[in-house]
């Protein structure tokens, strides 16, 4: 029973980091219709920058904030290249984000080196329902809950949040109202960068991150995001938790080496299942 609890808590925590990556996907896709292949990059930058800054003697708190700001700035930069040129079709933008994800490797290797980095945020473990659980896992869950609540407030209560929704729902009408959808798209990229960066900051203490950790994080985040058709952060959260817990359970009871396969097969199954229910027409028009 205690190992079940341990797997469950760890699965939920990992799922939370996927959810943050996924919400970045959703954020950017909603406003720009671009699937950002560089979404895993933000997590890598967030995690590696924090570790590196801490090594250079920056105190906790400041290091994390600087790392998040860098991830957001990188998001903005990628957005400028991907959607900044007027008339770039969404699929071209997608290919550009793929290129930039590779390009980011160059910068990451130069700045952080090509070895995995890690750091400690919350020390030690605690007893929870009879199981030993890393304190960091609770930090992850807490921060994720707060972030989701803030996102909810941002979209539900603020004028800018509503404008982002407006751009997602009808970019033409948004332009007529004087809202600039490209500028809103860049804002979405920056927020998406910060969310991805946050995922990296939270996960690096339990899973060391290297420059090429991005594809696995991105694939898991994407898998979670497609639960909600890349449009709904709350369904993405649900998807991420399902994914995280099932990976953790399989890793715990069947063998750690199957975690990745299960997650990926699950993602493929969901995608194919969703595609079978969506007519071609709806997708080509959208």
């Amino acid at each position: 029973m205690s190992s079940f609890i341990a797997y469950l808590v760890s699965g939920i925590a990992i799922g939370c980091t996927y959810a943050l990556v996924a919400s970045g996907f959703v954020m950017i896709h909603r406003v720009t219709r671009v699937v950002n292949f560089a979404q895993g990059t933000f997590a890598v930058v967030g995690g590696m920058a924090t570790a590196s800054l801490l090594r250079h003697g920056l105190p906790h708190g400041l290091a994390e904030v600087v790392a998040l700001a860098s991830a957001a700035a990188l998001g903005l930069l990628i957005g400028v290249v991907a959607i900044g040129k007027p008339g770039t079709p969404p699929l071209s933008s997608v290919i550009i984000t793929l290129g930039l994800a590779i390009g980011a490797y160059a910068g990451e290797v130069m700045i952080f080196g090509d070895q995995p980095l890690s750091f400690t945020m919350a020390h030690g473990s605690t007893s929870f329902l009879g199981a030993h659980v890393d304190r960091q896992l609770f930090v992850i869950m807490g921060v994720t809950v707060v972030s989701y609540a803030l996102l909810q407030l941002f979209f539900g209560r603020t004028y800018v949040g509503k404008a982002l929704t407006a751009c997602s729902s009808n970019p033409y009408a948004a332009r007529l109202s004087g809202i600039n959808p490209s500028r809103m798209g860049l804002l979405a990229f920056a927020i998406g960068g910060a969310l991805g960066g946050l995922a990296g900051v939270l996960i690096t203490p339990i899973q060391p991150v290297s420059f090429d950790s991005d594809s696995l994080l991105a694939v898991n985040g994407f898998a979670a995001a497609i639960f909600g058709g890349l449009m709904h952060p709350s369904t993405a959260l649900l998807g991420a938790l399902v994914l995280g817990v099932s990976e953790s359970m399989i890793g715990g009871y069947v063998g750690a080496s199957y975690e990745i396969e299960v997650a990926l097969v699950l993602m493929l199954a969901i995608m194919v299942w969703r595609a079978a229910r969506t007519p071609v027409m709806a997708e080509e028009v959208a």
Partner: peptide
């Protein structure tokens, strides 16, 4: 400009739709 086919922000409330019309002006 009131566009052809209404072009509202379907997910948002009527009030939010109206308020977004004033994006460039002060009086929302």
């Amino acid at each position: 400009h009131v566009p052809e086919g209404r072009q509202l922000f379907a997910d948002l409330s009527v009030e939010d739709n109206l308020r977004l019309g004033a994006w460039r002006s002060r009086n929302r």
